[in-house]
């Protein structure tokens, strides 16, 4: 970062479109994102797209706190959008970056976040090719909000849809669930708990590429962000008009994440993830896909947690640790810590 920004904060001038704005864009964004598309400084990025179906997505990031164990809002803004593209089987190519900054945000903090975005974009193999910055008065936003849109290409023959789950299909997750939600929960000062957990925040496109290299029979796939694994399973069960049954004892949950859940009365199946995918796959292909997933960092703890079964349409059931059965529905609202 240029030393002229040391100990300086974002002011309304940085969003005015004048010199302060253009300096900030050049010094922080163009410098860091460093690619030919962005450095032309046109009003739009221009690029050619390889043959195939185009996938387009957008998401906004408002996480609090903006830095957490295992990630930060910048990393999240790239992984979230890249993963949304990857879940269709698309190869993510280009991202946009829209920023809403609160007056008073230290420029050093902004720089850290932008660096983190670039690092994550490199990991994913995508380029951040255009952007926008607005500054709002103190109190009108919480430090920094980021929106990213992403574009990718789906190869011919790849057809992954939430309505394709079929009886007999296996349900795979790529690793331990709930770590992101538990991390955010424990970083909230008023709850006063501390645990050795970090967010699972990571890009999944390379993992998905590997999975597609060994199977044409991935029927449905979603990343289990807000609302957790249960919410995704319910969406798939409803869209595919099938019944999904998972076994509680096969769902991987880290010990400290379980500890946070026991103390606060939460269910890890509903906790948010930022690098966890749920894949519905034809059973014959399940072992091959698991094997290749386990060779990757993002998938080394992959496992089967359940299957699509005969039963009432649109319903997800859980065989509890204890041998009982219960229906696990979407939550009405957020999961709140409880005492009873």
């Amino acid at each position: 970062m240029h030393k002229k920004y040391k100990n300086k904060n974002i002011t309304m001038a940085h969003g005015s479109g004048g010199k302060a704005s253009s300096d900030l864009i050049k010094d922080i964004f163009v410098n860091t994102f460093d690619n030919d598309y962005l450095s032309t400084m046109e009003d739009q990025a221009r690029f050619n797209i390889p043959a195939g179906q185009i996938a387009l997505t957008t998401d906004s990031y408002v996480v609090n706190p903006i830095f957490f164990k295992g990630g930060d809002i910048g990393k999240l803004a790239v992984t979230g959008t890249v993963n949304d593209l990857a879940m269709s089987g698309a190869k993510p190519l280009y991202l946009t970056c829209g920023l809403i900054l609160e007056e008073g945000l230290p420029i050093e903090t902004l720089d850290k976040i932008i660096q983190s975005m670039q690092k994550t974009a490199e990991e994913a193999g995508v380029k951040i090719v255009c952007g926008d910055t607005k500054v709002v008065e103190k109190g009108s936003a919480d430090q920094i909000f980021i929106n990213t849109a992403g574009v990718g290409v789906i190869d011919k023959g790849v057809e992954i849809h939430s309505y394709q789950a079929k009886i007999g299909d296996k349900i795979i997750v790529n690793g331990f669930i709930g770590d992101h939600g538990a991390t955010i929960m424990q970083s909230r000062a008023e709850l006063g708990i501390s645990a050795d957990i970090e967010s699972d925040c990571q890009v999944l496109n390379h993992l998905v590429g590997k999975m597609l290299s060994v199977s044409n029979n991935i029927h449905s796939m979603r990343d289990a962000t807000r609302g957790g694994v249960v919410t995704v399973l319910n969406e798939i069960a409803q869209d595919s008009k099938v019944c999904i049954c998972i076994a509680e004892n096969s769902v991987p949950v880290r010990v400290p994440t379980r500890g946070v859940c026991e103390i606060l009365g939460l269910d890890p199946l509903y906790l948010a993830n930022e690098g966890t995918l749920v894949c519905v796959i034809q059973s014959e292909d399940a072992e091959a896909v698991l094997a290749i997933m386990r060779q990757t960092k993002a998938g080394k703890d992959a496992c089967i947690i359940g299957e699509v079964v005969e039963g009432p349409e649109g319903v997800v059931s859980l065989n509890t640790l204890f041998g009982g059965t219960k229906i696990i529905d979407k939550l009405v609202g957020d999961q709140l810590p409880r005492i009873c």
């Binding site: 006063g192 645990a195 400290p256 103390i263």
Partner: peptide, 8 residues
């Protein structure tokens, strides 16, 4: 301490 989670 409970499963690696601490609290006062």
């Amino acid at each position: 301490n409970l499963s690696g989670v601490s609290r006062a």
